[in-house]
Nucleic acid binder design. Structure first.
Lengths: 145, 145
DNA sequence: ACGTCTGAGTTCCTTGAGGGAACCCCAAGC
DNA sequence: GCTTGGGGTTCCCTCAAGGAACTCAGACGT
């Protein structure tokens, strides 16, 4: 489908993929760690990891003489974490409940506990759902995308 | 699971939900429009719409004397579109191919074709995967979240 | 009064993906 | 040479997605 959302979902749209990516992001890099932390079936974990490697968002690397491997984010994968960070911000705001957010994020640049906000890459002002007009682009083929 | 990503995925984690949300965002608000545009089965579309209504991200409204309904984003839903906008930015950058992005977004504030960028809500500087430190928060229960 | 059209779903059947548990391979270490 | 432990495969079984047909309710034309 000619839609960047659909294409992105082709990479992280399957049920477990975002959680796998998050775990790798925060440092769970080995197969057994991921399986234990997520409670995912080993079969599906294998499939998802292969898929993410195929799409170039993670890389499979040996870390021992023995056949031991770890998974690390590529540059493409690190940028995909942006999507997760926005999910965190939204989930913290709308779904955290009385206990408060389960995880906090300290921003290195300012040292404060914070969360992400969206701005226009061009002018730097806030950019949200109602702040844009949707137009067909060069790669468009059908009515929508 | 005590993880804001997992909780967000409970709302838009099922395969079609993000695409449904996108369609409603860009103005496809009726059942028949959504079904035709997405090619989703009517059964699953019904389930997804009900689920999104239950979670409070869209609202079902009659628009006629006859039993005709349209779906519109709530405030909660409009903020969830932030996630889609980041997916668009990432998909445009990494998956658009030679044809270029299928859809363009004009930012009302500056009038330019642009895309979103992530900044720290506290200090306004860029905030991405490597710019944060992850700490357990008040709502934490287990090792990770 | 009657058929019909249209939007908005339901129902039923069939297929494919996810869960679970067990099994396999290989290298080190004892 | 037997065990251990990480990193997967294989097999079966259930449940969710797809597809096509059916339903229902209110307007509208005649």
């Amino acid at each position: 489908m000619t839609c960047s959302i659909a294409r992105t979902l082709d990479v992280i749209g399957e049920p477990w993929s975002p959680l796998i990516l998050r775990d790798i992001w925060v440092g769970f890099s080995r197969f057994e760690q991921l399986q234990a932390d997520l409670g995912i079936s080993r079969k599906v974990l294998t499939e998802r990891l292969n898929h993410l490697v195929d799409r170039g968002v993670i890389e499979r690397r040996p870390y021992d003489q023995r056949p031991r491997y770890e998974y690390v984010l590529t540059a493409k994968g690190r940028e995909l974490v942006d999507v997760l960070m926005v999910m965190v911000a939204w989930g913290d705001k709308w779904l955290a409940g009385t206990a408060g957010p389960p995880v906090l994020y300290r921003h290195h640049a300012c040292g404060e506990i914070s969360h992400v906000d969206l701005v226009c890459a061009h002018c730097g002002k806030p950019m949200h759902a109602d702040d844009v007009e949707v137009l067909p682009g060069p790669g468009a083929s059908r009515s929508t995308a």
